[in-house]
Amino acid sequence: MTILSARPTSPASVDAGLVSQALVRQALVSQAVVSQAPAAVLMVRPHHFRPNVEECADNHFMSLPTLTPTEHARRAFDEVTAMAEGLRALGVEVELVDDIGTATPDSVFPNNWFTTHADGTVVTYPMMAPSRRLERRVDVLDLLHDRYAVRRVLDLSEAERTGRHLEGTGVLVLDHVHRVAYVGRSDRTDETVLQRFSEEFGYAVVLFDTADRTGSPIYHTNVLMNVGTDLALVGTSVIAPADRPRVLDSLRDTGHEVVELTMEQLEDFAGNALEVQGSQSRHLVMSARGVGSLTAAQRATIERRVPLHAVDIPTIEHAGGSARCMLAGIHLPRR
C-alpha cells in the first residue's frame, strides 16, 4: 500500500513491489473511461427505516426521532422516492430498488457494502454491525451484471469473521481519476483490508486521524469530506493537525479547489455530498440541511464549479448519514 499520509510518529513508506502492481492496475484502468462524477447511481428505498442502535457507539451524528416508528419509516420511504425523482429530472440514471428485509434499518445507505469501478469490478465490503451485513444482496449484484459490463466481483467481506471492517465509500473517499483514497482511521477501517484494496486498484492512500467533539475518531470519512472533479469540501478542523497539511497538499496537487467546513457544518451534513453527472452538467448533491449551513461565500465558491442540488431528507439524517451515504455511484461501463 502506497501511503501518502502516515501517523506523525511514522515516516511515509513506499513498497516498490506494491507500486509496480499499482502501475499495472492503473494501466489497465486507463483503458476505461474514468469519471469522478457517476452518471448513474443505485438507491435503496426502505420500508422499515429507523436509526440503528447497533451503530450508536461510534456514530455520533445520529439523533433520536420524535415520530412513531410507522411514521418514521413512511417519511423515509417518501424522502428516498422524492430524491430519486429529483435526480432523474437532472438526467442522472437512478437504479431504485426496494428494501426486502425487516432487520436492515440502514439499508438506505448502500454505498457502504459495495463499490463499482470503471474497469468492470464490483467490490463487496466487510461491515461492522451484524445487521448491516444483511444488506448485501445477490439480486442487486445481478442487476448490475444485467445492465452493466461487470468483469469481476471482488469479495472482501470475509474479513468480518476476524473482526476486520472496511465500510466501502463510507471510509474510502475516492478520487477515481487521480487514484487516491482519502481514509480516516476508525473502528470501521482495517488497514490490512485497506492494503488489499490499494493493491487491487493501484490507489495511493492518504491515511489520517480525526477527532469529533468528544475526541473520538469520526466513524466515516465521507461525513467530513467530499472530493469532486475539481472541488473538495473538507472539515479540516477535525483532521489531526499533523495530518492536515498532507491531506490538503494532496487535494491541491490534484487540482482541487478546497472549501473548508466547520465542525458545525459537518454536523449539518455539509461534508456528506456527492458529485453526479446529469444530462446537461454535473451537480453536487447535498441535503437541504447541509446547503442551509453554508455561508454565502462558500456557496458562491461551490457554484462557480458545480451547481448545488439540495435534497430534503431530515428523517434519513436521524440515522447519522445523509445524501452521499444514500448514493452508491455506478462507475461501471454500460452494456
Rank of each mutant, 00 (worst) to 15 (best):
Gly170Glu: 05
Val171Arg: 06
Val173Met: 07
His176Pro: 00
Val177Gly: 00
His178Trp: 05
His178Cys: 00
Ala181Ile: 01
Val183Gln: 09
Arg185Lys: 10
Arg185Leu: 13
Asp187Lys: 10
Asp190Gly: 06
Asp190Met: 08
Glu191Phe: 03
Thr192Lys: 06
Thr192Gly: 08
Val193Gly: 04
Val193Arg: 06
Arg196Gly: 07
Phe201Ile: 12
Tyr203Ser: 08
Ala204Leu: 04
Ala211Arg: 15
Ala211Lys: 10
Arg213Trp: 07
Thr214Trp: 11
Thr214Pro: 04
Thr214Met: 13
Gly215Ser: 06
Tyr219Thr: 02
His220Gln: 09
His220Glu: 07
Asn222Met: 14
Val223His: 10
Met225Trp: 10
Val227Ser: 00
Asp230Arg: 13
Ala232Asp: 12
Gly235Asn: 12
Gly235Met: 12
Thr236Val: 14
Thr236Gln: 04
Val238Asn: 01
Ala240His: 15
Pro241Met: 03
Ala242Pro: 07
Pro245Phe: 12
Arg246Met: 14
Arg246Leu: 13
Arg246Ile: 07
Asp249Asn: 14
Ser250Pro: 08
Ser250His: 12
Leu251Val: 01
Thr254Glu: 11
His256Val: 11
Val259Ser: 11
Val259Cys: 05
Val259Ile: 15
Glu260Met: 09
Leu261His: 00
Thr262Val: 07
Leu266Met: 15
Leu266Asn: 00
Gly271Gln: 06
Gly271Trp: 11
Gly271Thr: 05
Asn272Met: 05
Asn272Lys: 10
Ala273Asp: 08
Leu274Thr: 14
Glu275Thr: 12
Gln277Ala: 14
Gly278Trp: 10
Gln280Met: 08
Ser281Thr: 14
His283Cys: 06
His283Glu: 03
His283Gln: 05
Leu284Asn: 11
Met286Gln: 04
Met286Ala: 02
Ser287Lys: 01
Ala288Gln: 14
Gly290Arg: 08
Val291Tyr: 04
Gly292Trp: 04
Ala296Arg: 13
Arg299His: 03
Arg299Gln: 15
Arg299Met: 05
Ala300Arg: 12
Thr301Ser: 12
Thr301Glu: 08
Glu303Leu: 12
Arg304Leu: 09
Val306Gln: 00
Val306Asp: 01
Pro307Arg: 10
